[in-house]
């Protein structure tokens, strides 16, 4: 951003110059714009760092849950029921059946994360293909995809998801599909708008002149140019997928085996909230830490990509 930021920057700038009345400030609009850009870069870097740390704090223990020296997630011991955190070697305490809460959260997290990652892969692939085809070929393909995107807006979404899970059983494939179904329009809409911009560039015309097939042009030349930007949204969708999965499991429509996932652990702990605060609070904090981390990371990466691409593409994307 160059001249466009002069407006708001001027507003704060006039306050600074008020300190030395009578003398015009040596700070020009250009300096202000440059300092704003530096601050933006700094905040993007901070977001990426904090986000990565948050994600790593959750993902690493979850991935290594089987190697950590903690009791199994289903090892009951009724004499050790609802021990508060940090007692008897139980970092997160124990639940109503004397199972180690940390172990349950980590093992449940493996299922939650798997579902989340699978869901965004499925929705990412569907969204990319549908969006790219709609943007590149136009015509009836675009009409069909756009109508589908519109139709999904008016669907009562969570209701439909619950319905499908209730009818077809809460297995991991069904839940993955359901979350992917909820999320593909987001990817498709963005990919379509990116491809619309890309399609008009000279290299596409050149490919055409060289006699390349249109599908080849799309796959080999156009898609690689949009995949990076589209993949940033997919990261933000991971946060939503984790939240959606936890909401479904809270309502009893989450994966049932082999371990209770995060939403279910919280739903079970809810009955003991008056006496054992940690049963709900700690698993919830783990979800929040992960989702905040993913959101910050995605946000920071997007800020950085936007800066590199410059304000021009940003304007085009938001308009389309």
């Amino acid at each position: 951003m160059t001249a466009t930021t002069v407006g708001p920057a001027d507003g704060s700038g006039s306050r600074d110059t008020a300190a030395s009345p009578g003398r015009p400030s040596a700070v020009t609009a250009k300096d202000l714009a440059r300092s704003a850009a530096v601050r933006r870069r700094k905040s993007a870097r901070l977001k990426i760092w904090v986000g990565s740390v948050g994600v790593a704090l959750v993902v690493l223990p979850v991935a290594l849950a089987n190697l950590l020296p903690i009791p199994g997630p289903d090892e009951q011991s009724l004499s050790l029921r609802r021990l508060p955190p940090l007692t008897g070697g139980h970092l997160f305490g124990t639940d109503q059946l004397g199972r180690d809460l940390l172990s349950r959260v980590l093992h449940g997290g493996q299922v939650s994360l798997t579902v989340g990652v699978l869901a965004i892969i499925v929705s990412g692939v569907i969204g990319l293909i549908a969006g790219a085809a709609a943007g590149f070929f136009g015509g009836w393909v675009d009409t069909v995809v756009s109508r589908l995107l519109e139709a999904q807006l008016s669907l009562p979404l969570l209701l439909m998801l619950l319905l499908v899970v209730a009818l077809f059983g809460p297995s991991i494939p069904v839940i993955t599909f359901v979350i992917a179904f909820a999320q593909w329009p987001e990817v498709a809409r963005l990919t379509r708008s990116l491809v619309l911009v890309e399609r008009e560039k000279p290299y596409v015309a050149a490919a055409r002149v060289l006699g390349l097939h249109r599908v080849t042009t799309l796959l080999r030349h156009v898609l690689p140019n949009v995949v990076k930007q589209a993949s940033l949204v997919i990261l933000l969708l991971l946060a939503q997928a984790v939240l959606l999965e936890s909401a479904l499991s809270y309502l009893g429509a989450g994966p049932q085996r082999p371990f209770a996932t995060w939403g279910r652990i919280i739903a079970d702990g809810q009955d003991y909230i008056t006496t054992s605060w940690w049963l709900v609070t700690l698993p919830g904090l783990v979800i929040v830490l992960l989702v905040v981390g993913v959101n910050l990371l995605g946000d920071g990466l997007r800020d950085r990509a936007r800066r590199r691409k410059g304000p021009q593409t940003e304007g085009k994307v938001s308009r389309a």
Partner: peptide, 27 residues
Amino acid sequence: ADTARELGANVAMIAGQSMPEFWSGIM
């Protein structure tokens, strides 16, 4: 825009967006 205060508010909003509704409700 682009001040430390805005960054703080932004992070708070991201946190609000990242809480599962059932959890914040129970809390």
